[in-house]
Design a protein around this nucleic acid. Structure first.
Lengths: 154, 154
DNA sequence: GCACATAGTGAGCATGCATCACGATATCCG
DNA sequence: CGGATATCGTGATGCATGCTCACTATGTGC
């Protein structure tokens, strides 16, 4: 039922996904950061010091995975583990100075990326693109909520 | 230098990447297909029977990786290996009936996805979104070409 | 015909992610 | 208070993906 031009648009989106994935991964690979570790740092920037549980939920991965990621980030001196002040089961992960510095660099880089994608774009086109992106993100989010019942007809 | 609204737009794009990645992966995980294997099948659909070398270049991975992927797809009966008619070093990978069937199902699914994202969108908005996507994909591709010299200042 | 390039594979390694089992706490409720 | 239960982090283990290096078998060019 899908119209051909919708398929073509989807192809563009998918290509965007591929390119962006590659480009972001590459530019962040410096500093000894792997993609997941980078995502964790980014999340930590938004949330402030967090327990590993919170990080796991935020990243959409298992708690066990976060243990490994934090292990790595701790080894390279980007974050520290501290006991949670009120919950002795939990651990608070927070930035070291070095971690904060690298996140600042990442913000810088993100700005450069935004410029690359949108810099100098005519006002009208940007507005329309921005609105369109918002719409498809909303549609995806709405659809995602109903995708949960994973039925498997053999 | 980056304007705040450009950053906001980039955030939308990144969220799109995350959501799409998750959604596509989930819907394709059925049938015992992993993401890479799925991508390989998709490439095979575009290219027709191909040598593993061609698949490796198309996927952007090493030849060795393709060996493993084809191993898996062959084991589950989606593709077959056949000797190349003129080059005895090479192997031609092509669909089995089952492989062709699953790719047809994937096309169906892709159509559904395109509908989800763009179905019923006002003509004008769609056009503008489509053009905007094209532009940022082009910009990314252009930028990607110059990213090759990977320097690593210690 | 010999040097060199290319196709595919075995071996071995790293990362990212999952589940299962488990110890240490926290919390709830009788 | 005290036991059942839930939650936080982690050890063990396994799978998927991807890499490099070394190697065989084959094509190609001079």
């Amino acid at each position: 039922m899908a119209e051909a031009r919708h398929i073509a648009a989807l192809d563009r989106v998918l290509e965007l996904v591929v390119l962006l994935d590659k480009d972001m991964t590459e530019s962040l690979a410096k500093e000894g950061l792997t993609p997941s570790r980078t995502t964790l740092l980014w999340l930590l920037r938004s949330n402030g010091p967090s327990t590993q549980r919170v990080l796991a939920d935020g990243l959409g991965v298992s708690a066990r995975t976060v243990t490994g990621l934090v292990d790595g980030l701790e080894a390279t001196g980007f974050v520290t583990r501290q006991p949670h002040p009120t919950d002795r089961r939990a651990i608070l992960v927070s930035f070291t100075e070095r971690g904060a510095a690298v996140v600042a660099a990442m913000e810088q880089q993100q700005g450069g990326f935004a410029d690359l994608l949108f810099g100098g774009m005519p006002e009208q086109r940007f507005e329309c693109l921005y609105a369109g992106l918002g719409e498809i993100v909303d549609r995806l989010r709405a659809a995602g909520l109903t995708t949960t019942p994973h039925e498997e007809p053999s």
